[in-house]
Amino acid sequence: MSIRHGLLALLSRGPRHGYQLRVDFEASTGATWPLNVGQVYTTLARMERDGLVEPGESDDQGRVVYALTEAGRAEMERWFTTPVVPSDRPRDELVIKLAMAVAAEEVDVAEVIRRQRTATMRTLQQLTRAKRDSTQGRARLLVLDSMIFQAEAEQRWLDHCEAVLKEAR
């Protein structure tokens, strides 16, 4: 995804100025993707150039309020109706690292897995604590849940790797 898609979604709730968009963005994503206000204004300027948003009146502090255009609404719809494919995501460093550990000589792969599993569990514990203590909205909770499911999948995969390598020994 790009920042512009996120901004389109937030603008669908009504016109906003840049600072407000930044606050909304972080509140929805649980601050997993921090934005600075400069990025927001740069993105809005490009979106305006591409006809996705239009500036309206300035508020009393001189901040320009942006609204979705028809094209902007269509682009948002296209984004939400198109599933994400794996190539949109960056390569997973851990997967590469473990593959290299298996390929390399003189690496104790079981030890790499053991260390990683404990580190991943610590991450999972931190995420679970954040979820337990969260008083924020549903969007943020679901973002935390997503990270929990991902950490859990990583943990399961590490267990699987361990079992496969043990079998091969």
Binding site: R114, R117, T118, T120, M121, L124, Q125, L127, T128, R132, I148, F149, A151, E152, Q155, R156
Partner: peptide
């Protein structure tokens, strides 16, 4: 055997 539930613990022992 489920990581997501173990993660609620103060301490996890493998």
């Amino acid at each position: 055997h489920e990581p997501r539930y173990a993660a609620w613990a103060d301490r996890v022992v493998f």
